[in-house]
């Protein structure tokens, strides 16, 4: 799979304007997510990355434009770690079980549901933490638990908000490998990230956002000084290392030196 998205469309945004309390954050967004897509949305803080994710999720209605998706589409969402209270009284197993199918509303999980939770926790390497309170997990383990909760839904598309924010290098590698495996298994992946070198450079397809879609394409296409300057509002240098693009922040000192000649 290429990851740039050429298969059937799952979600389409056409000419969308969106924001909060009548203040548009994103304007004129046309973005289509395909069955075989693996996309990273990059941009500075406040650029509209999470807003774009919420439009795809359907938790934010557009002010203008149209959003099309199959109502039966199985979506899973992995939010940022700080969106929940980690002091909430649940264990890892109870938290993952929350995303079991809606037809079982009762307090007790079925034997099959318990087995599914066990399998997904083992796959993510946290099988031995099932009965721990969620407060006792490290940042990386919390991220894995959220991924387990998302996987239990057997999604067709998984959307993740800054999945490697606040985790160590080892967990970041594990998350990237897991997402790559899921993509190979046919799950479409869309994630936001501000980590250009650690995350974005490894993805097959990027969308640069700053209140609109600035550019879209492979890292080789969009990780250029001009596109990055339009997206982040700061000049950055891009170098090649072992066939990968690496972004070097020039910093205010070097930028000023270059400008003064």
């Amino acid at each position: 799979m290429t990851g740039i998205g050429v298969g059937p469309e799952l979600i389409s945004l056409d000419g969308v304007v969106a924001g909060y309390t009548h203040h548009p954050v994103l304007t004129d967004v046309t973005f289509h997510v395909h069955e075989d897509q693996f996309t990273g949305i990059v941009g500075p803080s406040g650029a509209g990355k999470t807003t774009l994710l919420r439009l795809l999720l359907g938790t934010l209605a557009p002010m203008a434009g149209t959003i099309t998706k199959d109502p039966a589409l199985r979506m899973a969402y992995v939010p940022q770690l700080e969106t929940v209270s980690w002091n909430f009284p649940v264990t890892v197993r109870e938290c993952v079980l929350m995303s079991r199918r809606a037809r079982n509303q009762l307090p007790w999980a079925s034997r099959a549901e318990k087995a599914s939770v066990g399998d997904v926790l083992e796959r993510l390497g946290i099988g031995d933490l099932a009965d721990r309170h969620i407060r006792e997990l490290s940042g990386g383990q919390q991220q894995r638990m959220f991924l387990a909760r998302a996987l239990l839904r057997q999604p067709q598309i998984m959307l993740l908000d800054e999945p490697t924010s606040g985790v160590d290098v080892s967990t970041r590698h594990d998350v990237l490998h897991l997402l790559a495996d899921l993509h190979e298994e046919g799950v479409a992946i869309v994630l936001t990230t501000h980590d250009l070198n650690g995350m974005a450079a490894h993805l097959p397809h990027l969308v640069c956002v700053n209140e609109r879609i600035v550019a879209s394409g492979s890292p080789a296409d969009v990780m250029t000084p001009d596109v990055l300057e339009q997206t982040f509002g700061a000049r950055m240098e891009v170098v090649e290392h072992l066939g990968m693009r690496i972004v070097v922040d020039e910093g205010p000192h070097r930028s000023a030196m270059r400008e003064t000649g």
Binding site: A76, P79, T83, E94, L97, M98, A102, N104, Q105, P107
Partner: peptide, 21 residues
Amino acid sequence: FLRYRALLFSTFDPEVAAVSG
């Protein structure tokens, strides 16, 4: 009793609960 999962999920994480049906 009958809305245990929906009540728990929406109390813990309303946004993900909404996406999860």
